[in-house]
Design a protein around this nucleic acid. Structure first.
Lengths: 345, 345
DNA sequence: CTGAAAGCGCTTACAG
DNA sequence: CTGAAAGCGCTTACAG
C-alpha cells in the first residue's frame, strides 16, 4: 500500500490470504471464523492500519451512522450540555454527531426533510422548540424519518421522548418564594415560540392562586431566554414605582441578566430583591450571588433521547417516554422578603 | 417510489427519460446539458424529493464531506464560538461538522489516526492544545491527513493555521494595569498543557520588566482555564498577608472565578482589587462588574481555519497563516490602584 | 450534447 | 467454516 492510500478490505484479504468476506466477518464479529483465521486477519489489519470504510458500509446498509442534533441557538451552556449528553451515549459507537444549529426553527421547518436528507442523517434529536413544531414533526413522521424529542409539551403519542414537569417545577419555585414571604413576585417569561414558557407561567400562576395571591399582568415581562433580554426585562420590572420583591426568571441566563440589572441599579440581592432562575446551567454558579434555580437534567435527557434514537435505528426495544425529576436548588440569590414590602391588595 | 424509500438517481433518470449520467450532470452543474433537459430533470427531481446520496458520492469520490472539530472540554462559551465560526463557513455547503470533544488531548494523541479514519473524516480542525501536540501533528502529517490548526504556538511550517499574538496581548493588558497604578499584580495561569499559558506569562513578565517591576513567584498561581480553578487560585492569592491590587487571569472563566472569590471575601472590585481576563467570551459581560479583557476573535479564527481546510480539500489556493489582531476591552472590573498599596521593594 | 460501462469498498444472499 | 457474485447510488473515463 503506497503512502497516503488507505488500506481496503481487499488489501487485508490478500495479505491474510482469505476472501474479503472473511475479513468482513472478523470486523463484524460474525460467527463461523476459526480463531486462527480471525487472529491472522486481525494481525494483518493492524499492520496495515486498516479501518473499515464507514462510507462504504453506509452505502450497502443504506445508512450513514450520522445523527443530527437540532437546536436553536440559545445559551452556550445549554447547548454544550446537550451535546455532551448525546456524545456520552455515542462514545465508542460507530455513530457520529452532526451539530445542526439554526437561527430560527420556524424558518427551517418546511425544509426539514431536505436538511436531514442532504446531510444524510440516519436520525435526529429534536430540542425545544423544534420538538413541538407541528410542521417539523409532521414532515418527519410522514417520511418515516427516525427522530426523538427532548422536552416536547404536545403530542406524546408521536414517538419516543424525554420530558420533565415544567409546570410542577415552576410551581415549586414559586411556592418557595412565597414561603420566604414574598407577596409580589415578578416573572420574566422566555421566548414565546418555546412552549416551555407557557408551561412555566402556568406553574407560576397556579402557585399564586393556591396561596390566594393575585397574578398582576404588569409583573410579567417578556424575555427571550437570553441574558440580554433578561437584563432588559428586569430593568423594566425594577423601574416600576412599586416593584416586586422577587423576580422569577424562566431560565438562568435571564436570571443572570436580572442580577446584572439589580447590581447596576444598586439593588441588593437578595436583601432587597430575590432572584430565581430555571435550568441550573453552568451560569447559575458563576453569577454572584449564586442562583437559586430549578435543576433540569439536560445532560441526562439528551443522553437518554440519543439512546432511544440509537435503539430505534437498531430496532431494539426502548422506552417511549422518560420523565426526569427536577429539583429545587437553593443558593444565595433568594432570601426573605424585605420588611415594609408593597402589598398586593 | 413507495413510502419511506428515498428516490435515487435511477428513479429520476427513468421519470425524466434520460440517463443517470445526465441527472448527475444537472446536479453537479456540469456543462453539456441543454436548458430544456436540465429543466425537466429538475422538475422530476423536485417532484420525487430527490437529494443526491452523499454517502454514494463519498464512496466514489473517496471522501465523506465530514469535517471534524477537535477540542478539549474547556468553557462552553469558547466551544460554542468555535462551532459557530466553523459552521458559519460550512453553511450552504455539502460539508457537515462532526464534533469531537475529548477529555484530554494527550490521552487520544496516539490514536488520532484511528479516530479520524473510523469517523471517516475528510479533514480536521485542531484547537489548543491539540494544535500544538507533537504526536498528533506528526501522525496526521505522516498519513497526509488534511488538518488546520487554530492558535498553534509552534511549528508554523506544518500547514495552514490561524493565530493571534498571545505574548503581545498579555503584555498589553499588563501595561494597562500598570498604567492604572498597580505595582503588584497577581497572575492566574492557565492549564500548563496549553502552550498559551506560557505565552501569556511571558507577555506579563515582559511588561513588568519593561516597567522596572519585579515578577514575584508567589504572585503567580496555577489554574486550569476553568471557573472553579480561577476561584480557588484567587482565594489563594487573596489570602496572602500582602495581597496584590490587581489580578490578571489568563482567561475569562478564571477571571470570573476570581470575581466570585472577591465577592465572597467582600473585597470590592475594582475599588480594592482590579481583575482582568482574557478571551472576551460571553462570560465577560455576564459577571459583575463586567470584565476588562482581551478580545480574541475566536469565531473568526474558527471560520478562517475551516475555510482553509475546505480550500485544501478542494485543492484551491488559500492562505498559510492568518494573524488576527487582538484588542484590549476595558470594562468595569479594573480601576486605579487603591492608595496605600503594598510596594514591591 | 448524451449515454453505457466500470468501479468506489463494503455487505447481503446464496452456495459449497 | 469459507468464498464468489451481485449490488448499494453515485462519478470517472471514455465513446459517440
Amino acid at each position: 500500500m503506497e503512502q497516503g492510500r488507505r488500506a481496503t478490505i481487499v488489501d487485508v484479504a490478500r495479505e491474510a490470504d482469505v476472501s474479503i468476506k472473511t475479513v468482513s466477518r472478523v470486523f463484524n464479529d460474525a460467527p463461523n471464523v476459526t480463531a486462527k483465521t480471525r487472529e491472522r486477519v486481525i494481525k494483518v489489519a493492524t499492520a496495515l492500519h486498516y479501518h473499515p470504510n464507514v462510507v462504504a458500509q453506509g452505502l450497502v446498509g443504506r445508512r450513514s451512522y450520522l445523527l443530527g442534533l437540532f437546536y436553536e441557538n440559545p445559551s452556550p451552556n445549554y447547548v454544550v450540555e446537550l451535546q455532551q449528553g448525546a456524545l456520552d451515549r455515542l462514545h465508542g459507537e460507530k455513530y457520529r454527531l452532526v451539530v445542526l444549529p439554526v437561527e430560527q426553527v420556524s424558518a427551517i421547518a418546511e425544509n426539514i426533510l431536505s436538511l436531514v436528507r442532504s446531510a444524510a442523517l440516519d436520525g435526529i434529536v429534536l430540542t425545544p422548540p423544534a420538538s413541538d413544531h407541528p410542521v417539523i414533526i409532521e414532515r418527519l413522521k410522514a417520511a418515516h424519518f427516525p427522530f426523538v424529542r427532548i422536552a416536547p409539551t404536545r403530542s406524546p403519542d408521536l414517538g419516543p421522548h424525554t420530558i420533565t414537569d415544567d409546570v410542577g417545577a415552576a410551581r415549586m419555585m414559586t411556592e418557595y418564594l412565597i414561603s420566604l414571604g414574598h407577596r409580589r413576585i415578578g416573572m420574566i417569561k422566555g421566548d414565546p415560540s418555546h412552549p416551555s414558557s407557557e408551561a412555566r407561567l402556568l406553574g407560576f400562576s397556579n402557585a399564586l392562586s393556591a396561596a390566594g395571591l393575585k397574578m398582576r399582568l404588569d409583573d410579567i415581562e417578556q424575555g427571550m431566554y437570553t441574558f440580554e433580554s433578561g437584563f432588559e426585562a428586569a430593568r423594566r420590572l425594577l423601574s416600576r414605582s412599586e416593584r416586586p420583591t422577587a423576580i422569577f426568571a424562566q431560565n438562568d441566563d435571564m436570571a443572570a441578566g436580572a442580577i446584572m440589572a439589580a447590581h447596576d441599579l444598586r439593588i441588593e440581592v437578595p436583601g432587597a430583591l430575590s432572584i430565581a432562575g430555571f435550568d441550573d446551567s453552568a451560569i447559575a454558579k458563576i453569577v454572584w450571588p449564586r442562583l437559586t434555580t430549578i435543576h433540569q437534567p439536560v445532560f441526562d435527557m439528551a443522553r437518554a433521547a440519543t439512546d432511544m434514537l440509537v435503539a430505534m435505528l437498531e430496532k431494539k426495544p426502548h422506552e417511549q417516554v422518560i420523565n426526569y425529576p427536577v429539583a429545587l436548588v437553593t443558593r444565595q440569590s433568594t432570601g426573605p422578603a424585605p420588611k415594609g414590602q408593597p402589598s398586593t391588595d
